[in-house]
Write a protein that binds this DNA or RNA. Structure first.
Lengths: 218, 218, 218, 218
DNA sequence: GATGAATGAGGATTCATTCAT
DNA sequence: TATGAATGAATCCTCATTCAT
């Protein structure tokens, strides 16, 4: 109830086709899935929270699983969207003068996303391991598309001499791990702690830079 | 069936009191919980895989939840055990000459644990968010005990001038994040990739060190 | 199936809201509960006799106990209803010239009730002792309301000199015992015996009168 | 726990053959059956209360039903025993000068029995209706033996002109009903009320006498 | 005789899904 | 489109009973 994640903009492709009830169903599903997990959530519970009849859910989503997919698929897409954007690698030469700015942009941007859509991110993280049919497209997109793009970017920076010559796979891991570690700690694990966001972001950037850039002096 | 995690040594306190059947129930439960999640696993499924009657499960574990707890509780305990060991902080002055050796020891040790008990770790990670009664003791032990110990250690190194003067909370996050990121990538997310463990460990250590030590020259 | 107690008029308050199936469930439950007792009756048995799916029972009654309560509560209410009717004690001065007519009216009236609703009365008698939460309201209503009313009536007759001066508690016991003893013998214990109802009623009335009225000449 | 009904003397025929454990099983069974009813009582519950292993019950009683029978059968026998005693009808001419003394003797005697063995009487009353195989011998003994004896006695008194000329069946009903009504009110329904036993007994006797004796002057 | 681990049929209840309205 | 009564398979769990020790 209470807060309302306007996660609906994640589903923009057909958001306009949605009835009011369908939106309420999705909202309710996101909220309960994220609290109790997909398996432990009953469709009648969703119906009740959404204020619709039990049957109504199945008018819009053939099965309970369909409802889950309709939440996860676009989340996954949007989560990696900025990275696989066609013009993403342009940033290298244009928008961002250096890796530091680049990292900062990524972190801030993904933090906003996480903050706004944490319930869906949580569902995503929880359910991915249990649904092989979700895993497949995920690996295909992330491990292939994202990885490929990032590798390109890193190699460019390496050629420019800004990043040390370690395998790009490792560079990606260090960076992703540090960023995700921060974001998950911030919004998922200890959301109620007192976070000095500005400061933590800077520290995290410096931590990463020290590890991957050729020279780093504060 | 198939592979057999000898996770039973996690429960060493009463392993000897266990019936043969009880052991088979635990093994089956660990395997299926880790594959499909607690909620999506039925007790009849566990019974079948364990080769016992369904009623037998409930002779040993009052409820399905009890069975889960009997798996998670000791896992949690053992997972953080090396860190809260009484003589753990002795390592500072004695066994390990420097942070590097210290980090290496931790990583290698926790990797072994993860490798051996990945199914239980997976259950732990998946179920913790959904069971507030599990969350509580976890936070109490980890966030308090572990955190406290690590803070002590870090401050000691900081006084010695080996670690930079950032908040120990952040130092812990950077380090933990990098280690866990590596271990989870290694054994949970991409276990089938070709990993050069030796090399990855060294790189990870160097990455962390660059970020947290006062002087780091490769 | 077989005979059909139209006990549904006991539940007249919401009889109209009931589905056809819900009615069949109640009928089946009354029949089997009365034959085998609540505990020994399975919901699958009720469903089968009612010709509905087992799940349907739980759509209408949250639990098996709820089903029992929905039978017992109104039975209890109706059983004592005529006695706690607002205008019941009016009978003293108006409708009934004397105790004899009064007793006759009560007996005939309660016999009709018992005859019509014996299965429910049986359930009531059998289950009351085992369900403290049923006992409470029963004692509160019967022991208080009924008792209070009857005491008033008896005292009135005593003042008129028609009933001997024993404690009204004892008068009530003698009378109730004789009436209930007759009704239970008639419809519960030996229903198949040849009963000359008219004659038995008169004898019972005379038996009571001899014991409680000041002068009794046949 | 607490109080201990020494109902075992009801089972005197083989009380001596009983092991200590068997006795404890019977005691536990009587207590729980009487509290919750036969069907709602589990053998494991009985075993626990008796302090024996679950299997032990079945060494002594082939089935749970057997255990019930071993409680009910002798209770039934003893309950009617004084009435069908061979020399019972002797009382007419010898011990008791008149019906009044006879009634008093019966009441006092059965009150003692009821007080001592109420849990078993309760089990008896509750379970008889649900076990046709118990009903049969009951009807055979009570309806035949007891009834036959009492009819003889009543007819004797009627010949002597002490009891009015109503059908003996009705006389029996009035009397039994009044006595049982008192005893059950006294020990089963309102055991915790303040009972003036002496007084209530006398009133009950007088109530019965007024109804069945030819002349009754207080 | 006594145990208690093991059983598997059966218990109450929940659930995703269907379909007539 | 929306409903919600109805379903029956599946769920967790209990139970009386058995049997090797």
């Amino acid at each position: 109830m209470s807060e309302q994640y306007d996660f609906l903009d994640l589903l923009s492709e057909n958001k306009d086709n949605m009835t009011e009830k369908q939106k309420r169903i999705l909202e309710a599903a996101v909220e309960i899935f994220s609290e109790k997990g997909y398996s432990a959530t009953s469709t009648s519970e969703i119906a009740k929270k959404a204020g619709v009849a039990e049957g109504t859910i199945f008018r819009h989503y053939k099965t309970k699983k369909d409802l889950l997919l309709s939440i996860i698929a676009p989340t996954m897409a949007k989560f990696i969207a900025p990275i696989i954007m066609k013009d993403f690698y342009k940033v290298l030469s244009s928008d961002y003068q250096n890796i530091e700015d680049f990292l900062r942009a990524i972190i801030v941007n993904r933090m906003q996303f996480a903050k706004k859509h944490m319930p869906m991110v949580k569902i995503f993280l929880q359910e991915i391991p249990f649904h092989p049919e979700l895993k497949e497209p995920f690996k295909e997109h992330v491990a292939n598309q994202v990885f490929e793009r990032l590798t390109l970017i890193i190699e460019t920076y390496q050629k420019k001499g800004e990043i040390i010559n370690l395998p790009s796979k490792s560079i990606i891991r260090f960076t992703a791990t540090s960023i995700l570690g921060f974001i998950l700690a911030r919004y998922l694990i200890f959301p109620e702690a007192n976070w000095e966001d500005e400061q933590e972001i800077e520290m995290t950037i410096q931590f990463i830079l020290h590890g991957i850039s050729t020279s780093s002096l504060d």
